[in-house]
Design a protein around this nucleic acid. Structure first.
Length: 828
DNA sequence: AGCACGCCGACT
DNA sequence: GTCGGCGTGCTC
């Protein structure tokens, strides 16, 4: 016939490395012009022609094909759910972060939108006992279960009940014997909620005559009058407002005067919250300069990145708000990223307070349905602003004007699951592709971002004035070694103790900060130095006092708290350092009259407990708040005049090249919690390393000095921003095998480097080494670290891609998992 | 991953 | 001869 063949190039929704490629499907004639690029379709896949959802990335025309192609079954969307821009970005993500297509695709879609055709198993031969031989144990088991559960269940459910794994052949035999039937049923986890609306079918001039004709039907007249005035109304509301019953309405419906239509009803997660108006503030001179400069870029639609380095309280949020106003004026949309939305309610409140409705909020604990609704508000153009955590960077705006990333140094902007993207990288990409600007803000910028500022790659603004007149708090460093010399074995120095006491006397609030949940509460023997570690994960176990046990925070294993040292039997075993719980109970005994509350991962498991504690604190119903990182962010309480940092060192001793940076950031952020009001704040910093630069520069609020010092070290030891890193982690149950595979890959990388003329590979490839956490959940972990030291970065990446993706089957047995992290934040 | 195929041992 | 366990290899 010589007719053209339309071929859809699609990615199947199958979370496997082996199917991570583009599959071609022919588009049957009746679907030509119906299915398009960016749509989801159902396709048959594999030998069993299992039905899978597939995402069409491209459609091409070919005259003939020499290979067999299967037909698309049917479309799942009536219009594309992925735009051209997004498809391009999917390819970029895959290539940059070396993830799978499907993982990149999932960034753009709300979870739960995925359709699956479930297999339904149905019993059709009731008298099966006559046909099946007594020996076929497995077949009998399947049929019994089917019978018990009503003769029709999903394959999944059946599989869950079976005592054997290999059910496929059993089912096939039963199907062939016509005893069971296997069918498909489509299921989507999300349903669009609809609400009934009443509408008039009469024309305006008909209404009055109709009303007159109704005579005695008083209620019906009221309804018609109401609808004449309001055009349409939700049935629920109509009945509520007019105090009429459904029967009156039904009468009108049966007479044909009114119709009921289903209208989509969007769930609103913030419906119960009233936001106070947040009026525009007059910017100070520094703020105004920033706003003016960036506004020009917005007006000219120039892609560019800005870094706002502003001390806490320098009014960055007001800058964000005024820039957003400019973006909206250009009919463009904006994204605001915050580290974690539950911890930064003030940012959300201010945006709502300034712009009212028209904002989509992408919470971390939205339900699938709520998330879907927020996503639809964006795709349908109903909102122009999206606020959310990391994943909101993928908000599907059509005309993006600006991305704001607040607290840009935060770790939460780097994804820990594939694709392991960094929100700043994605923002910069979108900026260039979509002509938007990026605004990064932080009181303690990351070394990488600040370095880019110095290199003029991004425009740097420094804000030194606090927007409100309050001064930065004074920070005192307490040398805990001297405390010990003076006979104070307590975890509170004399200075901090008396400061808390004074603060309580004048009815001011105190925040006590501890570096990590139970990070320091490892159990150690003073006699032999033995540290109790998890036998599965090789990390120190954490003491949980109220449970009287030790827990591993990686695998969750629990053991009884030991009374003597498991190694030398000495009774001199000690609970070292202190977790938040221990501090809480200690403070309780020191200050029995004070109201003390703890805020950490354990005390905020229950949904909404953050807000509850913070609300209580805001109202002044808590005297002392003890907490972890969680309390270091964004809290702005004027009555807090004292911040105590119990031990500034815990994060300093982490085995990571960013340990100093993290310590500086934490101490600075926490110190910024004091003195937000009219009273001067006081910060007391307890440490065993008072001479460490990250401690004293943080105490002096001196980012510049810290940066200079840190940058020297980064340069000397060849770390980012001077090189880029790639971390490859191999995981498996057999330690020897994991080691051998990772060593083989290491040698291959070195071999290729040498062949390409880079013989100094010992400065490029490090490892394989056991990961710092060398064992998680009975699985051993080895890693290779790559640095692009005097070797092109793209060469390193293409080597990794070649060995671990393209030729994966050749090098990696299926018992080993490989995880690739491009530009890792932690190497653990 | 998910499925079928094919080889082999157990059991009638 | 039949059934079921397990290893292997492919998926448009």
């Amino acid at each position: 016939m010589g007719e053209n063949l339309y071929i859809a190039q699609a990615i199947v929704n199958n979370n496997s490395l082996h199917t991570d490629k583009i599959f071609d499907y022919s588009i049957p004639e009746d679907l030509q012009g119906v299915v398009a690029k960016g749509m989801r379709v159902m396709v048959p896949f594999g030998i069993g022609n299992n039905r899978l959802e597939a995402y069409i990335l491209n459609i091409k025309k070919e005259e003939k094909v020499t290979y067999k192609l299967k037909d698309i079954l049917y479309p799942l969307d009536d219009k594309p759910i992925l735009t051209e821009t997004q498809i391009k970005m999917i390819l970029w993500l895959k290539n940059k972060y070396l993830c799978r297509y499907i993982e990149a695709i999932h960034c753009f879609l709300p979870s739960g939108i995925v359709n699956k055709e479930k297999k339904i198993v149905e019993l059709i031969e009731k008298d099966w006992q006559k046909v099946i031989s007594r020996n076929s144990k497995n077949q009998i088991e399947v049929l019994r279960i089917l019978e018990d559960l009503g003769g029709k269940i999903t394959l999944e459910k059946l599989f869950g009940k079976l005592s054997f794994k290999n059910f496929q052949s059993t089912l096939k035999i039963l199907e062939e014997k016509n005893i069971i039937k296997i069918d498909y049923s489509i299921s989507s986890r999300i349903k669009i909620q609809t609400q009934q609306y009443a509408q008039l079918t009469l024309k305006d001039d008909e209404v009055d005559t109709t009303i007159a004709s109704l005579k005695n039907a008083k209620r019906q007249k009221e309804i018609l009058l109401f609808l004449k005035a309001h055009k349409e109304c939700a049935v629920k509301e109509l009945l509520d407002i007019l105090k009429v019953t459904r029967s009156s309405l039904n009468a009108l419906i049966s007479k044909g005067y009114i119709t009921i239509i289903d209208k989509e009803h969007k769930r609103d997660p913030f419906k119960d919250i009233v936001f106070k108006d947040f009026p525009k503030l007059v910017p100070n001179s520094q703020q105004k300069k920033v706003i003016d400069v960036i506004t020009n870029y917005i007006k000219e639609e120039k892609a560019h990145t800005f870094l706002l380095h502003g001390i806490t309280g320098s009014g960055k949020t007001e800058i964000y708000l005024q820039l957003m106003e400019q973006v909206l004026k250009k009919d463009k949309q904006g994204i605001i990223l915050v580290p974690e939305i539950a911890l930064t309610p003030q940012t959300v409140e201010r945006f709502y307070g300034r712009f009212g409705e028209g904002i989509a909020v992408l919470h971390s604990n939205l339900s699938d349905g709520e998330r879907f609704d927020e996503w639809r508000k964006i795709t349908e153009g109903k909102v122009n602003i999206a606020i959310g955590a990391r994943s909101a960077i993928f908000a599907p705006f059509k005309n993006l004007g600006m991305v704001i990333i607040d607290e840009e140094h935060e770790n939460t902007y780097k994804s820990e699951i594939n694709p392991k993207y960094h929100a700043i990288e994605v923002a910069n990409y979108r900026s260039k592709e979509e002509g938007a600007i990026v605004v990064l803000g932080s009181a303690t910028p990351s070394i990488e971002s600040y370095y880019k500022g110095e290199q003029k790659e991004v425009s740097l603004f420094t804000l030194t004035k606090r927007a409100t007149a309050s001064d930065l708090p004074e920070v005192e460093i307490i040398d805990m070694r001297k405390e010990l010399d003076n006979g104070n074995k307590s975890i509170l120095s004399h200075t901090l103790f008396s400061a808390i006491q004074q603060n309580l006397e004048v009815n001011k609030q105190t925040i006590l900060f501890l570096n990590r949940r139970g990070f320091a509460t490892f159990v150690s023997c003073r006699q032999c130095g033995y540290v109790v570690k998890c036998k599965h994960c090789d990390i120190a176990m954490t003491h949980h006092k109220n449970m009287k046990n030790l827990q591993c925070h990686y695998c969750g294993d629990k053991i009884q708290e030991p009374e003597t040292c498991p190694s030398c039997s000495s009774s001199n075993i000690n609970y070292f350092g202190a977790g938040t719980q221990r501090i809480e109970s200690l403070i309780n005994t020191y200050f029995p009259k004070a109201i003390i509350e703890r805020m950490d991962m354990d005390s905020t498991i229950v949904k909404g407990s953050h807000q509850r504690i913070l609300e209580k604190f805001k109202k002044g119903k808590i005297d002392i708040l003890v907490g972890t990182q969680m309390i270091s962010k964004g809290l702005d309480f004027p009555n807090v005049t004292l911040v105590g940092v119990i031990s500034a060192d815990a994060s300093l001793n982490l085995p990571d090249f960013r340990a100093s940076e993290k310590t500086f950031q934490l101490v600075t952020q926490v110190a910024g919690r004091a003195g937000r009001g009219l009273d001067k704040g006081r910060v007391i910093l307890q440490t065993y390393n008072p001479e460490h630069y990250s401690i004293y520069t943080a105490a002096n609020h001196d980012f510049e000095s810290f940066y200079k010092e840190e940058l020297l070290l980064r340069k000397e030891f060849i770390y980012p921003p001077f090189v880029q890193l790639i971390n490859i982690c191999f995981t498996g149950k057999n330690e020897k095998e994991v080691y051998i595979v990772s060593e083989k890959i290491t040698n291959n990388i070195k071999y290729i480097l040498q062949a390409k003329g880079y013989s100094q590979y010992n400065e490029i490839v490090f490892g394989p080494n056991p990961a710092i956490i060398s064992k998680i959940n009975e699985k051993f972990r080895y890693q290779i670290l790559l640095k692009n030291h005097e070797v092109p970065y793209h060469l390193l990446r293409s080597i990794v891609k070649y060995l671990l993706l393209d030729k994966r089957q050749k090098f990696i047995p299926s018992t080993i998992t490989v995880s690739i992290d491009i530009d890792p934040l932690y190497i653990m």
